[in-house]
Amino acid sequence: MTPVLVVENLIKTYPAFRLGPVSFKVEAGSIMGFIGRNGAGKTTTLKSILNIAHPNSGSIRYFGQELPGNERAIKQRVGFAGGAADCYPRKKIADIIAVTRNFYDNWDDAAYRKYMGIFSIDPQKTPRELSEGMKVKLNLAIALSHRAELLILDEPTSGLDPVSREELLEIFAALKERGVAILFSTHITSDLDKCADYITYIRKGELVASDTMESFLSGHRMRGEGSNLEEIMLRCEKEDYRDKFAE
C-alpha cells in the first residue's frame, strides 16, 4: 500500500538554523509520533511539508503524488490542527464553517454535525470561547468533515490538562481504527507511549531515528539508553548545567 506521506532528504536552512536532511514516511491508518525538544525543528518540518515554508531541497510526496504541482488536490485530503491554527477567534464557528466548507469537494454536512455533537462544540460560540482542547477538537471536526485521510497535528496536546489529553489520545486511537493516518508532533512523549506506531526523532535539526515504535524502543533499551520515550529523550538531550556554571 502506498504510504500517505513520504518525506525524503528534506533540508531547510535559516540564517541561524539548519533542518535536515530529514526523511520519514507515514503509513495509512497509523500514528507517527514526531518528537524532539522545543526548537528541534518539528514545526519547521511540518510547515515545509504543508508548503507554508519552502524547503531548500528534498522531496515530499502525498498519496504517491509530488507536493509541487498537486497542492490543491493533496490539501483536499489532508487536515491540519495546531496552536498556530487559531484563526478568526471572534467569528462565530458557524460562520467560519459556512465559508470553509465551500473549499472542500468532499465536505459532508452530516459528518460535520456528527463530529460537532461528539466533541460537544456549540457552533454559535466563537473560537476564543473554546478551551485549548476544544480548539483542537474543532480543527479535527473540520478535517474529518472533509474526509481527511491524513491529519497533521502540531503539538495538539501541549497546554492541555491531563483529562483533555487523555480524551484526545482516545480520539486519535479511534480515528486510526477508521483508517486515518496521523502525524503528531509533540515534546510530551508520554502521549506517544500510549498511541504511536512509529517514531521520528529529531535533535537540533538533525534526524536521529525514524522507525517503528517497537524497534525504536528495543534498540535504545539494548544500548541502556532508557526503556520509554521520555527516558530516551532525557538521556539524549539533557545538558549538565552544573558543569556549565562551574566553568
Partner: peptide, 15 residues
Amino acid sequence: ETNDVLYSALLPIDK
C-alpha cells in the same frame, strides 16, 4: 490578528 494568511495558505487553493 486573526491568522487570516495562515488559514488561507492551508486551504486547498493556489497560494
